[in-house]
Amino acid sequence: MNTNFQGTGVAIVTPFHNYGTIDFSGLERLLHHVLDGGVNYIVSLGTTSEAPALTTDEKQAVMHFVKETVNGRVPVVMGIGGNSTHTVVGTIKNTDFDGVDAILSVTPYYNKPNQKGIYNHFKNVAAASPVPVILYNIPGRTASNIAAETTLQLAHDFKNIVAVKEASGDLAQVMEILRQKPKDFQVLSGDDALTFPMMTLGASGVISVLANVLPQPFTQMVNLLLQNKITKAREIHYSLLPVMQQLFADGNPAGIKAALEIKGIIKNNLRLPMVKANKAVYFALQKLLREF
C-alpha cells in the first residue's frame, strides 16, 4: 500500500468527442504525455475531470482505462467525494480498489457542515476506505473550509488519512498544519501558483492542473524544491506563472482543455454546465505555450 504522495500528482482531465462521449484515445495520449513528462502519480475523477458531469458507468470506465494504461508505472489516486456521507461511504464499499493506491475525498459541499460535521464525515470515510485517504480542502468550490485544527485532528486520529490537498489559498492555515502535523502526514498544494511558496514552507508536493499540459517543467520545479534548490525552482515558477494565471482565467477545466488542444493532445470539448474558455484566454494561452 503506497502512502507516499510527495512530488507531482496530476489531476487529469476527461477528454470528450465532439458528440459528447468520452474520448478514450485522447485519454490514452494524455496519460502517456504526463507519464513521459515525469509526473509521480495520476489523480483521476477529481474536480478537473468534470466528475460531477460523468455517470457512474462512465466513472468506472475511466478508472478501468486509467489503471490499465498506467499499468503500475506510478500510483493512481481516485476521486471519491460528495455531500452525503452515507452515499460516499456506499460508493467506497462498492468500488474495486485493485490498482488504486488512494482516494482523494473533497469536503462536503453545499450543505456547509460545521467542523464537527466535517470531522465525522471523514471519520466515516476513513473507516470505510481500504486504501489511504487524501483530504481535499477547496472552500472556493465547496463553501466549506476544513480548519487547520480539524485537519490536524483527523491526521492524528486516523492512520489511513495520510495527506491533505490544500487549496484554501490561506498560507497561515497551511503553516499551522505544517507546524503541528504528524511526521508522515503530507501537505500537498492544490493550487499550481502556490506550489512554490507552499513547498518552501514544507509542503511535500502538489496535485496539479498545469502538469496536464506542461508536465516536464512543472515536475522539474517540484523536484528542485524537494532538493532545496530554491533559486532554480523560483526561475521556473516565474516562467510558468503567466500560463498558470491564464489556465484559470475563465474557469477550470476550460483553460487546461484549451491548452491541451493547442498542444494537439485532446479536443477542446467540455460538458455542460462547463463551457469552452473565451477567445481571449485561448489566444493568450496559444501565445504563452509557444515558449514551451
Score class of each variant (00 low, 15 high):
Gln245Pro: 03
Val62Met: 11
Asp96Glu: 12
Gln173Thr: 08
Gly81Thr: 06
Glu68Ala: 15
Asn40His: 10
Phe65Asn: 14
Glu166Gly: 05
Ile80Gln: 05
Leu289Gln: 13
Lys112Ser: 05
Asn160Ala: 02
Asn160Gly: 07
Ile22Thr: 08
Asn71Met: 04
His32Ile: 08
Met175Lys: 15
Asp170Glu: 08
Asn137Ser: 08
Thr107Leu: 00
Glu166Ala: 09
Val34Met: 08
Ile230Gln: 15
Ala172Asn: 15
Leu135Thr: 01
Phe196Tyr: 15
Val133Phe: 04
Leu270Gln: 02
Pro197Arg: 13
Leu35Tyr: 15
Ala211Ser: 12
Leu31Met: 13
Val62Thr: 07
Pro197Glu: 07
Asn71Cys: 10
Gln180Gly: 10
Leu104Pro: 02
Asp192Gln: 04
Val187Lys: 00
Lys123Gly: 11
Asp57Asn: 13
Gln173Gly: 06
Leu178Thr: 03
Asn212Met: 11
Tyr136Arg: 02
Leu104Cys: 10
Asp184Met: 12
Asp250His: 14
Lys67Gly: 06
Gly169Ala: 12
Asn71Arg: 14
His17Cys: 12
Glu28Gly: 14
Leu285Gln: 00
Val66Cys: 08
Ala249Val: 11
Pro182Ser: 12
Ala249Trp: 01
Lys116Gly: 06
Leu270Asp: 01
Val187Asn: 02
His121Trp: 04
Gly46His: 05
Leu188Gln: 03
Ala193Asn: 12
Val162Thr: 07
Lys183Ala: 03
Thr3Glu: 13
Ala277Glu: 03
Asp23Gly: 10
